[in-house]
Structures are given as structure tokens and as C-alpha cells.
Design a protein around this nucleic acid. Structure first.
Lengths: 344, 344
DNA sequence: TTGTAAGCGTTATCAG
DNA sequence: CTGATAACGCTTACAA
């Protein structure tokens, strides 16, 4: 029954066009176009007639033709300059995409996904420059790659996470890592911890550094002394190693702020190994509110980054820009939120 | 130097067109088009001249115009009919996307991402039907939604995971859930387990059912008796609940096959709660080889699904179809692989 | 091998 | 409020 056609190129029996709908409704092509685009100056009865024709014929506007004529692609690109393994391992991206999708869903824009580890051929930029998209969302945890420097000159761009390179145009949406870390550490203080250690992220990353500073600030402001410090690498294994380091340091501590849940998920079992109880003997606060936070037993108190909302806002800014509105400040900093579970 | 224009709609100084390149190279528009599209019947010197002009002017073909004329969108859609929370929680999607991206990267197609929880307005289908994409990749863990039934009639479609509804056309790439579950269970048997329990996935999902069958088959083939059975829901919480059920069932068991790592990550802590040791008292095998598998302590022995490769192959099939080739069988079944860690 | 010219389906600018 | 009529930038027979 099926299978012999091989609809490689052409559509089934050619979809209805504006022209045909116009003929059916007994009006001009232009009028149908107006109706389709919701122009206010069309008489009600004609609108009704055209609508009817459209429904009956199952008319769908042709994107390509529309783009060509209007010089708008009605598409935006999501550029993620990360290698795929990173993209896979970090739930941040999925949340971000979900947020972006939520905002874009009920616009008439579509999302082009471009995972571009590096750009040897310049394909990505060339594509973007080809007018196939009206704007771009660029996200990455680490430094923005050079090949994207030209982008803000070509079209509206919104960066997710402050780019390490000079922004040179484009809006930025970022999370307040400093404040988040401070809040997390303050939770430990409120719960009565007197000596608080930390497992930091890599200190050569903006996020890692800012969280470390937040920890220090909270401790200073509370008039406490810093507990032991170990540098981690945002991985579970690294977290375990760092926790061993901390426990071996012979400096006692009753609370620890760990700069990522993934690291915490590696660190917590180490604590048990040593026969300590959480939260009775040691209170723990993580960072990210990643799925790992609920996998840890007991549930990890952590600092939630609004990754999803970040995506939503990035899309909202870009869509606004494309509509000619520019209501957001050039740099939007999102607040984090403390998620209290059982470890602190 | 920059910043004052506000490129709301129009491009900078209008990008060069075929026409202009033609003028510059002293040939006709058609010839430039041929060169751009790599037609073999253009003399070498003209090719060179045109190429030079293209480079000098930085010409990039306009997608919309090209699509309009050639009736090909050079885009494919990735349709994920899941609600966003699911999309976020399940690393499967990220892996799949990575695989798809790898295949598509060096084609000249772009990927349109469509997360479509449900389709009340029919927006998704209407979009797809509008000729904006040449083909579609459809993935979901659960039953394909009705609103996608029409798709294979409109364009080439490749499903990821056997759709629960009638396939009615379209290729399918799936993982051998049955064999995977059997292999995982066999591992428990080899390790000396005599009475093996299972936490199943939802039994109204093909994947859940097939894994359950695989477990049963392995046990039957080994001449053992089935241990207790609890139905889970592919979530960590559900896994914990199911494990309690199992442990409360007063039926002893020394091994358990858990149909997803996420469930296992919830179930394992429950085992410790009851004072049992893994793997000494109870051996555990999970399924998915998701990141959760390495977060669990000790490392979870599990069955790896080639999600990434699945994405790659899906894209490869679709691209082939679009190029007029149809070399894959209608249904491609991928093998799973046992990943041995510490729990069994 | 190269050029000419007719679309592709919309939008947008004019008149009416 | 409605209708002609140009574009939009490219592909593709058909000629030359």
C-alpha cells in the first residue's frame, strides 16, 4: 500500500496557495494575505469568507515565500559552542532549552539548534549570516569562542552567561553566582554551623570564582573564620576527591558549601564512609539544584539557578528586540533561590 | 563605531545577491547559481572567476529564495512530544540530540527543534505541513501522540523508538529493550544470584514491557524462579517506593534488575536504609547507563543504550531518504551493551 | 558550456 | 477597504 512513491522532493498534490484561496473566496490575493496576517482593515464579512476558504482548503502559508518577501526568517538560532559530551552531561542545557521553548512556543518563530564545538569551516557563522535567522541566542558555560565575535554585528544577539570575551554588543542574561553562594553559605550559618569549609569550582572560571567569593563574603559578614578549602572541578569524582582532602586536613568543620551538586553527589558518600552523619555531624549545601540534588541521600539543600527562566528571558529579550522593543536592561542578572532539603 | 544602528529588521547594507556576483564576475546569474551548486558543466576558468567574485563579496545564498525556487527547505525537524519536565529530567534526549547533530553537522541541513508537549492548536503539525522542513525525526519514550499520525503521509519521517500507535509509514530506529534486559539479568545470574527481583518501568509503555519480558526470559532460561516484582515509573522517587515494596514483600531476593538507572538511583539508598550491603547482600543492575549510574554509590552496573548512536542513525536515514536513497531496513534495531561497575 | 526567462508564493506599495 | 502589480533572490527548463 505504501512505499512506492518515495516523496523525496515534491509535496503531495501541491498545497493550496494564496492565489487559490483567493479564487475560492472570490477576492484578491492581497486581501487573503491581509486576512492571514491579521490586518485590521478588512471588512468583517470578507474576513469570514476568506477564513472559511482557508479552512476548507487547509491552506498553510509557505514559509520560504513569506521570508523572501518580508525579509524576515521568523527563526532564531540557539548556538551552543560546546562539545557534545559537555552538552550531554550538563542538565543546564536541557533546562535552558525548555525555557526557551516555552517562550517561543506561542510566538510564530521556530528554533534552529546549532551545537558548534568549534567552527573550523566557518559554517555556523556563514549560515547565520545568510539571513536564515533573525537573531541568535548564544550560551556556553565557558569562554565564548572567537568565531562568534562577529555575531552581534550581524543580528540581535542575547548571550546566556556573561561571555568571558568582550561582549561588544548584544544583551546578556546571567545568574548572580556571588549572591547565590552567599545565600547558600548563610543557610549553614543560620543552622548553627561555626566552621564552614568549601569545595570550590575551578577557579579559572567566572562561575567558580564568583561562588568562592560569595562563600568568603558570607563567612566574613558573620564574623566567622574560614574553614578548610579544596578546589574541585564540577565533577562528581572531583567532589569526592576534594571531600577526602577536606576531611584529611585535620581542620575540623561542621558545615560545607559545595559549589555544584554534581560535586556534592560525589562528596556526600565520602562523608558516610568516614562514619559521619548528615546533617547531624556535618551540614551540606550544594549549588545548581540539578537532578543530582534529589538523587543524593538525604536530599541535598542547594541553591537553585533559574536555568529555565534564564532561557525564557533570553528568548523574551530576543523576541522583543525583533519586534523593535528593547525594554530589558542590557544586562539582566537573575536571582538564585535557596532550595531547602535535608542536608542543611 | 558600533551600536547606534539598531538592526531591527534589515540587514547591513543589503547582502550581495546572485545578480551582483554575476555582474562582478561578468557572467549570468544562472552561471553563478551553477557554480554555487557545484554543477559539473561549467568551464574551469569561469568557475574560478565566479568563486573569486563570491569570496571577494562575501556572498552567501539566501535560504528563503533558494527554498522557494527549489521547493526544498533544507531543514529537518526534531519533534519531541514530551512535556518539558520530562525533557529536562531525561539525559536520553541530550544524547540523542548530540548524535543527530553530529550527523547533520556536515550536511547542509539545519535542525529545527520542536518540543511539543501536546498540540492543542495543531500548531506543530501545521508548521510541519507548511513545507518548512523536508523531513522529520520523531522521538518519545511513550506513545506517539495522535496529532503526529498524519506526518508520515506528508514527508519522510524517522521514529526513534517504536511508536506505540500504528507506524503507518516512516522508518523506525529502536533499541533492543528485550535483549538488553535479558543481558542485564543474566549478569545477575552469572554473579550467582538465585532469586532475582525486578523493578519494572511503566507496563503501558513498550520499553517498560519489553524490559520486563527480557527479565522474565533470562530467569526462565536459567531455570530459576521469579523473585518479587514491583512496577515503577522511571523516576527516582518511584524507584525508592518500589524498592520498599520489594523489601517489604517478605520474599527474599539476592539480586534485582531495575529497568532504569533513575529508578535505581532512588532504590539504592533504600537498600542501605534497611542495613543491606551492595553488592554483598544484594546485587543490582540498572538500565540506561545514564549519568545517574555513576552518581550512585557504589557505581551502578547497568545496560547501556546507544542513544547517541540512535540519533546519528536516525539522522543518517532521514538524510538518505531526502537524497533519494533508502538503504536502511524499515526497522533498525540497535544493540545494547552491558556496563559493569560495582553493584553486580 | 552559457544565457534567457519564467516561475516559486508572499508581501508591500500604490492607486482606486 | 480592496485590488493590481511590482519586487524578494534563486532555480531551472529551454534556447542559443
Amino acid at each position: 500500500m505504501t512505499g512506492t512513491e518515495g516523496h523525496g522532493v515534491d509535496t503531495h498534490g501541491s498545497a493550496p496557495t494564496l492565489e487559490k484561496v483567493a479564487a475560492r473566496a472570490g477576492v484578491s490575493r492581497a486581501t487573503v494575505s491581509r486576512v492571514v496576517n491579521g490586518s485590521p482593515k478588512v471588512s468583517d464579512d470578507i474576513v469570514a469568507r476568506v477564513r472559511a476558504a482557508i479552512d476548507e482548503m487547509g491552506y498553510v502559508p509557505n514559509r520560504a515565500a513569506r521570508s523572501l518577501a518580508s525579509r524576515q526568517a521568523h527563526a532564531i538560532a540557539l548556538v551552543i559552542p560546546e562539545d557534545t559530551s559537555r552538552f550531554i552531561g550538563d542538565p543546564f542545557f536541557a533546562m535552558l532549552i525548555a525555557g526557551i521553548n516555552e517562550r517561543i512556543e506561542d510566538s510564530h518563530y521556530v528554533l534552529n539548534l546549532m551545537l558548534a564545538n568549534d567552527d573550523p569551516s566557518g559554517k555556523t557563522v556563514r549560515y547565520l549570516a545568510g539571513g536564515s535567522v533573525d537573531g541568535a541566542l548564544v550560551v556556553s558555560h565557558h569562554e565564548m569562542d572567537a568565531f562568534l565575535d562577529a555575531l552581534p554585528g550581524l543580528m540581535p544577539v542575547v548571550f546566556g552567561g556573561r561571555p568571558a570575551r568582550s561582549t561588544s554588543g548584544g544583551h546578556v542574561v546571567d545568574v548572580d553566582n556571588f549572591a547565590g553562594a552567599r545565600t547558600g553559605t548563610e543557610r549553614l550559618i543560620e543552622r548553627g554551623c561555626k566552621r564552614i569549609a568549601t569545595i570550590t569550582g575551578p577557579l579559572n572560571m567566572p562561575g567558580g570564582r564568583d561562588r568562592f567569593s560569595g562563600w568568603k563574603a558570607a563567612i566574613r559578614d558573620a564574623g566567622l573564620e574560614q574553614g578548610p578549602i579544596a578546589e574541585g572541578d564540577f565533577t562528581a569524582i572531583g567532589g569526592a576527591r576534594a571531600m577526602r582532602e577536606l576531611l584529611d586536613s585535620s581542620q575540623g568543620f561542621d558545615g560545607v558549601f559545595i559549589a555544584s551538586d554534581l560535586m556534592a553527589s560525589g562528596a556526600v558518600p565520602v562523608v558516610y564512609e568516614r562514619g559521619l552523619r548528615i546533617p547531624q555531624d556535618l551540614k551540606v549545601v550544594g549549588y545548581d539544584d540539578s537532578p543530582a540534588a534529589t538523587l543524593v541521600e538525604p536530599g541535598l539543600t542547594t541553591v537553585s539557578q533559574p536555568s529555565r527562566r534564564m532561557g525564557w528571558i533570553m528568548a523574551d529579550i530576543l523576541l522583543g528586540l525583533l519586534a523593535g522593543r528593547d525594554v530589558y536592561p542590557n544586562e539582566v542578572i537573575l536571582d538564585t533561590e535557596l532550595v531547602v532539603r535535608e542536608t542543611a
